[in-house]
Amino acid sequence: MSREEIDRRLERLKGEREQITRVLLELEAHQGYQLLKGARLTGVTERRWIDINGRMATLWKLFDAHGKVLGEAEELRARHTKPGQVQLAELTRLLTGTSVELVSGEIPLEERTLLGPTGEWLTLEGVVQRMTPLYEETAGMVASADEIWSALLTRLGEVEETARAVEALHGSLAIREPDFDRIAGLLAAVGETARSDPLSLSSGGRADTSRIDEIGRDLAALRGRLEDAVRIRDEHDERARAIANAIELVETAEHEAAQARETVLAKIASPALPDLPAVSASLRDRLAALEGLRGDGRWLELATRAAELERTVATALDQARETTGLVTGLLDRREELRGRLDAYKAKAGRLGLAEDTALTELHQRAHDLLWTSPCDLRGATVALADYQRAIASRAEGTSR
């Protein structure tokens, strides 16, 4: 190589070395690398770190061997501002020939034998080519481990925050949910694994948070129940008053149903009546029982019982009002039949049938049934139908 070619080659190789230095230092400074380096590792992750650490050691050894030869070339060029043929030949050998000797530890395992090799010679470019896939594989392993670890620790942190919230709720309520200790034990175990052996909690190169997620769901459900209990505690007086007011509405509705039943029994003959609801007294007993739970600080049970009582009271109110409607419906039916009778009589008058004796008798029979107490609704319905048919028959005859 000429002096100019050697100078250009030296300049390019120095630039490459600066780039390699920066990349290797960035890899060592990578968050994932630092986490692996500083953590107390076990299992799969420990074995992966041993592999990564060995690869990094090999990269640095190759880097040092590369630098040693490049440094010799720089020193030789610096000593000879006008190198002769001997110096040019030596510089050419150093920069382009197999001038870098690798000891056995730097030689890939698959290229070794039982008897050696004791060493291997590479060009400077050959060293870089050897380092490139090794670096890429190592960087990929570090990045994958970091991604898995970060995902696990992020999800773990969220679930642990929920666990702390549950613990605080326990303190606020002065109770201890029995299931919490079991869940907390599972969380501690998976947390230890996530911090010391995160790669054992991975699948297909991605973090497997299923165990943490399941614990998170259990804690979230427990937190929800405890928050309901806190809300029940803080809002109990107001809620109890609302339930008491609703029970009063149930009692009023039951009273109205009973009164309607008495009226119907007096005014309607042999009515088919539904059973009267009578649950308001038992509802008041259940409301009183809630105060006992409150006094004992049994907030979780109080939350459940109060919600159940609210639903029961609402159902009871609907049933009482429905019963009243069914009972009073018989009276409404009687009023409907009376109205229809008057309408048919008016129709007969318009048709000039007011003096029809047979129609008058049919009308009187229906009228007597509808205005007699107790009223025979079934008989009145039949009588009204007879009266209607008779009017229709006479109207048809008149039109002919």
Rank of each mutant, 00 (worst) to 15 (best):
L249M: 09
P274C: 10
F63H: 12
T123V: 03
V250D: 06
L201N: 00
R394N: 00
E355V: 05
T138C: 14
G204C: 07
T42G: 10
E120M: 14
L156R: 03
G116N: 06
A246H: 01
R233I: 06
L331W: 01
E167G: 08
E90C: 05
E101G: 12
D296A: 13
P198A: 01
P274A: 08
A257R: 01
A65K: 10
K14D: 15
L226E: 00
K61D: 11
A242L: 14
E262T: 14
S399T: 07
G352P: 00
R8V: 11
P108W: 02
L359C: 01
N53Y: 10
V264W: 08
R12G: 07
L249S: 14
E227G: 06
R9A: 07
L337H: 09
E160T: 03
R305L: 10
I20E: 02
T372N: 15
S210P: 05
E5H: 12
E147V: 08
R350K: 13
G71R: 05
G171D: 13
L62S: 09
L173N: 01
S144T: 15
S104M: 10
R311T: 08
A366P: 03
K345R: 12
G339V: 03
C375E: 01
Q259S: 05
V230D: 06
A229S: 13
S373N: 13
A288E: 15
A260V: 04
V127D: 01
S196R: 05
I6G: 00
H255T: 12
L152W: 06
L109P: 14
E26L: 13
R55N: 10
D208K: 04
E136M: 03
R394I: 04
